[in-house]
Design a binder for these strands. Structure first.
Lengths: 335, 335
DNA sequence: CTGAAAGCGCTAACAC
DNA sequence: GTGTTAGCGCTTTCAG
């Protein structure tokens, strides 16, 4: 398996450059030569040496992906981002090097060591410490999520503001007059994580646009936190009939708590979940949801990265439009 | 950032090889030269070019990890394997290239393209199609899980047979005489996935060793599947008082179904879960569990891979001993 | 349409 | 203890 491009060239009776060019397609090759070369490649089981290629071309065909590899929150969403990125990368003939999100030194290691052509970073926070270091790298980066100042950066995310607005509007249009948002844990809010704040903004705008009352409660990602949050909502808004839940981990416990408090879904309270479809339909009652298209976001991130690598396209931020799917958990309020 | 080893050599007033050797430590360097070189490296922000290094040394300092990136099953366990592998790899100064488990061509791509020093493959099945291709690769591989014939392969896994035995014995010793195992989905069994079969074998041996009656029921990873499986157990063993659950996804639903059927945990039925600790304590009632030490398994996998890469150690298979942690879900049967 | 050859940046003999 | 240098396998001018 130690076959080199020269072995192939010799076997095909051509020069090494010819082999290189049939591989890259960067110059026209006559049909007969091409065939001889391709045959030799096949018969020898030849694979170009990635390192040699990277050295000569300064392209690695590898993408770095920084993913938050903790176990606590929305693991399945993370997984979908990752698969989205990996499968998309393959369509651009790239492989994926996995870094953990905290490995801030890893960015410089893989970038300055020329191990990757670009970086994709998940789970970006308002003042993410990773963002400043990007400026020192020679490879482009795409952020999944929005930092405080996205100026000059490639960013992609769900349009959470639109998502919050959509969820609120859906409930309002059904006729609900008292609705609540059960959102992210306080810690996430404290970090000013952009998606949480945008969600709240959209929800708030949605309720006021519709002229209904809305309250927002943070919600820890634990059973106790869910119970507590539901109780706070019921205290603040005793006649609440609409609930938007933007916390996948807490979701099952929120539903259980509602049941225990004697609030039936959807007869007493309609629920819109902001989560991936598999989570929405995996509950006892299939939930109306606003999709978090994690897979699509991952794909778009890769497309943006490749656009910058291959065509030096400028940075831009793309917010994907949310989509609401109506299921069994939302109905008009029962008189 | 386009600094090369020659820039460093020039700045330090030494030869390139000297720089190379202070970097690799492969030959003694006098303190003064070493310091001049290290200073130059620091001041220039020099990073060796990974491709050039790989080309010259035929070592990439990258490990391939094939992970099952589906969203359906035990996502959190997969995540823990992955973090275990990634963090362990870093301690060996290696990065991780992520492949999806189905990408069988990816193995040959990264191996024959000399992109990696070794491969780690998760989720190995009895007749895993990936195993035969390993023979054609020049890099060593470590399997997480056990193929039908592990001869000559590096394998690591939890000792599921011991785990099944341990769980059964724990219940039997508490005094339970009728115990059941709710296991993997039928599809997993049909594939003769090794861990599922070993679990069953251990459980069965455990019950017969203890002289208690045990039944085994497969369990789909869905709410309906969990309900169904619990009902089958109750039908087969109406007086069941002990339950071993080896299906993380179904676990919450199993517990809910028990409640609905009027079987209280732990008063009416004791439950041992086979799952990671965070899942065990994340339930309404903290569960006695047999740990799946995913993180440790990932680490061991990397250690085995590096042992083969760095010291050409022979292949071996290592089964990690299970550990049972007693929590609130198991008690002696209530008279 | 094809070849020859100069690097890409580093490692590891081989010198001294 | 340090320097010189021949590759590692590929891409890409520069020449036909």
């Amino acid at each position: 398996m130690a076959t080199t491009i020269d072995d192939v060239a010799r076997a095909a009776g051509v020069s090494t450059s010819t082999v290189s060019y049939v591989l890259s397609g960067k110059r026209p090759i006559s049909a007969p030569t091409r065939q001889r070369v391709e045959r030799a490649i096949r018969e020898l089981g030849y694979r170009p040496h990635a390192g040699a290629r990277a050295l000569a071309s300064s392209r690695t065909n590898v993408l770095a992906l920084m993913a938050p590899l903790r176990v606590d929150v929305n693991v399945s969403v993370i997984m979908q981002f990752v698969t989205g990125v990996v499968t998309a990368a393959r369509t651009f003939d790239h492989d994926v090097l996995l870094l953990t999100a905290d490995e801030i030194a890893g960015m410089e290691r893989v970038a300055n060591g020329s191990m990757v052509d670009a970086l994709v970073m998940m789970d970006i926070e308002a003042d993410d410490p990773r963002v400043p270091v990007l400026a020192g790298l020679s490879q482009p980066a795409v952020l999944i999520g929005l930092p405080r100042d996205p100026e000059g950066l490639s960013c992609v995310d769900l349009d959470f503001e639109a998502a919050g607005h959509l969820a609120a509007r859906h409930l309002a249009r059904l006729g609900h007059r008292q609705i609540a948002l059960l959102g992210s844990p306080q810690a996430v809010l404290d970090r000013h994580t952009s998606y949480a704040e945008r969600m709240i903004r959209g929800f708030t705008r949605g309720t006021s646009d519709a002229g209904v009352t809305g309250v927002v409660e943070p919600c820890e990602s634990s059973m106790a936190g869910a119970v507590d949050a539901v109780d706070r909502v019921l205290a603040a808004l005793p006649d609440v009939t609409g609930l938007v839940v933007h916390n996948e981990v807490a979701l099952p416990w929120v539903l259980a708590t509602l049941r225990e408090r004697g609030r039936h879904v959807p007869d007493d309270v309609s629920v819109v979940a902001v989560c991936p479809p598999d989570v929405a339909v995996g509950q006892a009652l299939p939930l109306t949801n606003v999709d978090i298209p994690a897979h699509a976001i991952g794909r778009v991130a890769v497309e943006m990265a490749m656009a910058r690598v291959e065509r030096s396209e400028p940075a831009e931020t793309r917010l994907l439009a949310p989509m609401l799917v109506e299921r069994a958990s939302t109905v008009a309020p029962v008189r």
